[in-house]
Design a protein around this nucleic acid. Sequence first.
DNA 1: CCCCTATTGAGATTTTTTTCACGTTTACTA
DNA 2: TAGTAAACGTGAAAAAAATCTCAATAGGGG
Lengths: 221, 221
Amino acid sequence: MAKLRRVVLERLMRYYRFLSESSFKKPPQTITSAQIAEALDIDPTQVRKDFGTIGLLGIGRVGFDVCEVCRAIRFNLGFDQRQEAVLIGTGHLGTALLAYSGFASYGLHIVAAFDSDSDKVGGEIAGCAVKPMRAMKPYIKRRGIRLAILTAPHEVAQKLADRLVSAGIKAIWNFAPTRLTAPPDVLVRDEHISLGLSVIAHHLAQATRPDRGQDTEGRAP
Amino acid sequence: MAKLRRVVLERLMRYYRFLSESSFKKPPQTITSAQIAEALDIDPTQVRKDFGTIGLLGIGRVGFDVCEVCRAIRFNLGFDQRQEAVLIGTGHLGTALLAYSGFASYGLHIVAAFDSDSDKVGGEIAGCAVKPMRAMKPYIKRRGIRLAILTAPHEVAQKLADRLVSAGIKAIWNFAPTRLTAPPDVLVRDEHISLGLSVIAHHLAQATRPDRGQDTEGRAP
DNA sequence: CCCCTATTGAGATTTTTTTCACGTTTACTA
DNA sequence: TAGTAAACGTGAAAAAAATCTCAATAGGGG
Ligand SMILES: NC(=O)c1ccc[n+]([C@@H]2O[C@H](COP(=O)([O-])OP(=O)(O)OC[C@H]3O[C@@H](n4cnc5c(N)ncnc54)[C@H](O)[C@@H]3O)[C@@H](O)[C@H]2O)c1
Ligand SMILES: NC(=O)c1ccc[n+]([C@@H]2O[C@H](COP(=O)([O-])OP(=O)(O)OC[C@H]3O[C@@H](n4cnc5c(N)ncnc54)[C@H](O)[C@@H]3O)[C@@H](O)[C@H]2O)c1
């Protein structure tokens, strides 16, 4: 399995989600790159190139076999392997992620949650037990967990990440607004939700104060 | 105010969050592009270029004035204007966003929430009233709200987006795993949280089944 | 005051990503 | 069975993004 670039991986995810919708599961079960491109607002050539990089071949005048595409994406993205994860920090966002049922279709299963708050420890959220922090490292080691979802406050994020790494974690999905550092063999994905706000706020600000010749003075447009 | 590209906007957001941290607010209140670059894992030239595009000039041997940089970013990203928003769908994720206090520092204030569930209507989440759907359009029109945060289920997302647009909304921050379509003057930001999963899952799958093929990396071009 | 060095701004260059252009393949129809 | 048109694969071109190079500048030490 070749290593794929981030942009490609993210597009593959979009193809997968689109094709997983039931409407394409009935015969003839084929779809053209143009149809996918249209629905996802991507160039058709890009779709074919992406499929090419994971070894998918379409057939002229017909397109691609939907099931085969899904299978190839599942394989390359590792959705065909059960992936167990732990979640650290059962606050508002942690609870939302625990309650979210959509991850199972990507092979992801959150098998335990950990929190430092003794009021939460011992409880259960969406069927997942909340355990004390001291139980974290042994749990991860014993079950060979490789993925951690970090939804703890910003201030403790890096410290928790270090503990996770020392427990043997190989990937961290970080929702705290912090850039985590970790050894090179540990993948960190910073999921900065509020980045999106920059695009939105700028768009709205643009509408409010239109560009009246700000930079090169004197040259009225 | 010039229109900025998405990649630039997102980096500006990262600079802003980094510089907002109190540690740089004390004298001498200057910072070099290299320091920012180091902390954020970005090329120093990139930092200077980004600052240049929003009209910021540094001074040789000193760097940039932190306050001035923050002010310029706030202006260009519109954080200096109070931005009121409504939230549709007060489920798990909606609740988390309502409870999140971090948005205020970007000028964003969620002033009302709407839900179709009569059990939730009339209640209050994190100090924000939950109103019935029929009240949505009048509320948006009356208060001149331009931004909507969409945290309703996938199946109803597009229909709700259409209603929001007809109510006069100019930007939609969409958390449902759907690609929304809207008129060109309405900005849609699809915040697909699970896209990050593609990168993580692929990384973990790679470790499990290393490339039994030949080369080390895709040398396609 | 003048030299030294860290740091900037901007043009040049490289790398990455997207799009175009076109020859080839395949199914359908007459 | 040949003609046609829809769809593919691929290499070239274009566009976008990131990085490199270097003269100019400014603070600080001698
Ligand atoms: N809620 C959102 O919408 C949202 C949006 C963007 C980013 N975030 C980020 O996600 C993270 C969590 O947000 P939240 O709203 O769920 O916060 P929260 O305060 O509701 O939850 C934080 C949880 O972490 C636990 N915790 C605190 N210190 C801990 C430690 N040392 N070890 C283990 N657990 C610890 C707390 O007990 C709590 O349960 C924060 O970093 C926040 O910035 C949240
Ligand atoms: N929870 C997560 O971690 C997570 C992660 C990724 C994506 N998402 C997406 O975010 C969205 C919300 O997720 P959630 O976990 O909060 O779901 P949820 O079921 O907890 O909440 C959905 C809310 O929407 C309301 N709703 C349903 N139909 C409505 C309608 N027609 N009009 C107005 N409100 C309506 C429901 O009453 C409910 O309060 C979903 O699209 C989900 O796919 C959630």
